[in-house]
Design a protein around this nucleic acid. Sequence first.
DNA 1: AAACTGACTGTTA
DNA 2: GTAACAGCCAGTT
Length: 104
Amino acid sequence: MSSEQDTFQQRIYHIVSAIPYGHVATYGEIADLAGSVRAARQVGGVLKRLPKGSKLPWHRVVNRMGRISLTGLDLDRQRLALEAEGVTVSPEGDIDLQRYRWQR
DNA sequence: AAACTGACTGTTA
DNA sequence: GTAACAGCCAGTT
């Protein structure tokens, strides 16, 4: 039998890694898929503490308004990562959810 | 073990 | 459309 534990964090890793290239998902949506519809904040918490060098596409996660929740340099990094895969992002971090959202 | 934190969200004004 | 508030809950101290 498997030794893996079914932690919230691991489910988040799994779900975020499944967001397709060039698309985005919201914190709430990921929390929902992870089985905790009210834990959107925790999704951010998990992503914030990602191990250095993680390959997880954390930049594909935005808030429900279709806006990057990070600020300053972090916002710039996320915007650049998204634009690099073809997602248009305004200077303030706004993204067209209708167009790029995963799981419409 | 208890308190604190916050990459969120829905409601209300 | 924006702003303030409160509830939320896994992770960290």
